[in-house]
Design a protein around this nucleic acid. Sequence first.
DNA 1: CTCAAATAAGACAAAATTGTCTCAGATATC
DNA 2: GATATCTGAGACAATTTTGTCTTATTTGAG
Lengths: 187, 187
Amino acid sequence: MSDSTPTKTQQALLQTLTPVLACNPGASLSEIAKQAGIGRATLYRHFASRDALVKAVAMDAIAAFDQATAEVKVQNLNAGDALLAFLQKVIPLGDRFHFLAIEPAAYNDPEIATAYARQLQELNAFITTLKQAGFIAVDVPKAWVTTAIDSLIWSAWSAVQAGDIAPNDAAALAYRTLIQGLGPLKS
Amino acid sequence: MSDSTPTKTQQALLQTLTPVLACNPGASLSEIAKQAGIGRATLYRHFASRDALVKAVAMDAIAAFDQATAEVKVQNLNAGDALLAFLQKVIPLGDRFHFLAIEPAAYNDPEIATAYARQLQELNAFITTLKQAGFIAVDVPKAWVTTAIDSLIWSAWSAVQAGDIAPNDAAALAYRTLIQGLGPLKS
DNA sequence: CTCAAATAAGACAAAATTGTCTCAGATATC
DNA sequence: GATATCTGAGACAATTTTGTCTTATTTGAG
């Protein structure tokens, strides 16, 4: 078990801290603590440094993504249903993945970069399954499918957060955009 | 004419500085200057402060977007062709709009917020046109179309930048995802 | 109610960054 | 070649942020 496994208190803190950091990654620790409603000293009690906090938030995002993926896998759904179920689970985590993408301290960390690359590889394998099952056209570059999924997750999260679309509609809209948009061409 | 109209030298500097800032918005001015290949003193000679630089980059992004929009409009294309032409022009600017979205110093500035809201309104009007012309289904919330366009522009830019897709394919893939994905449902 | 554990405000030092200024060198113009 | 203008390195001061520590207060468990 890695020493980076968060304690129960760290876990609880991450719940509050993640949205604050995701919303304004450049904020000072004073500002972050204030918006999270805790003391700066408490931050230092549980996280050795700002970098340690950023890494914990990033690793937590990765764990949440893995959890969501595992929960979909055990359902043994067909590829299309699996995509919809996957979107339903990861869209509420949309801000965390965006944070992973834009925070240099996160994507430059070797442990996080390795985990992120693994997740990307798993997503690529899943896209292969979607193509083989005919949900995604074979002529669409896999790189495009990957980046479209990532960005539509962020879109959906943002729109829900802004109150522009209902939480229940988010996954369906993203699913429709992807499957209908990148499915086999129809004449 | 606003006093924020950039000088010729500022314009040239923005060309170099924009990608650097967009790539790492939290970098120090020392780091930014170094990566842009200029001196920190030169930055201060042309921009009064870090905030002034950030605002100049943001206003430049807005001007570039307005320019792209104007160039599409004069072509008097039908709604579908206009969307494709628009994507072709704005995808190369993808990092700038992303910067606008994630940089608090940018979106908290009233002048930039006003300009951005105007652009969003224009995009909304364009989406209405797309719906009326049957390119986008009327049942799709306008908010979803807007956010999908924004995020797919960023996706396309990222994928081109990473060398994952060819620059020529980017707009077509984004167009296909949007129009086929959000067009009227087919049975 | 008592006591142990946790928290947070604030003080402090160190480090990092911003902003100002000078001046030698580079560049552009005539 | 001379001169004006621009640039960038570096020094310096001010400000901000990080990280450490102490202590009073709060919270939670028994």
